[in-house]
Amino acid sequence: MIDEQSLITINADDLVSQVEKLRNSGHRLIQICCAKIADTIEVNYSFDNNYSFTNLRIILPLSDLRINSVSAIYLQALLYENEMHDLFGVEVKNMAIDYKGTFYRTSFKTPFNPPTDKA
């Protein structure tokens, strides 16, 4: 495709400051998603600024699935964060609205990261 995609891997601690920097430079949050790769979970934060695409990536080990919320910077992040809590079991601290696992009504908990796979 035409657009260049920059994928940047950052530390979980730097997340909030990095996201704030992007917000101040006029980026729009497109989406947040998780992907389970072997025994880690990759969390992708995608941003767009005038059709140019930026992606921040955080790699979390399955044993420590905790992350800070960015919903204070982008309100809509709360939807994605509740989603990753319900589907992947990632604990997100300080969400604007915490549905406590009732955002998706799944028949068993964290279907995309079943407990049997956990280390």
Binding site: I30, Q31, C33, C34, A35, K36, I37, N44, S46, L75, Q76, L79
Partner: peptide, 28 residues
């Protein structure tokens, strides 16, 4: 705008397909 994130690992089964549909972005 719809976003498809695809992660493939070299086999015929993909690791992850993630679909961000426009309505999800418009709820906020």
């Amino acid at each position: 705008e719809a976003v498809y994130y695809i992660k493939a690992n070299g086999t015929k089964f993909l690791d992850r397909v993630r679909v961000r549909t426009p309505t999800f972005a418009n709820i906020a």
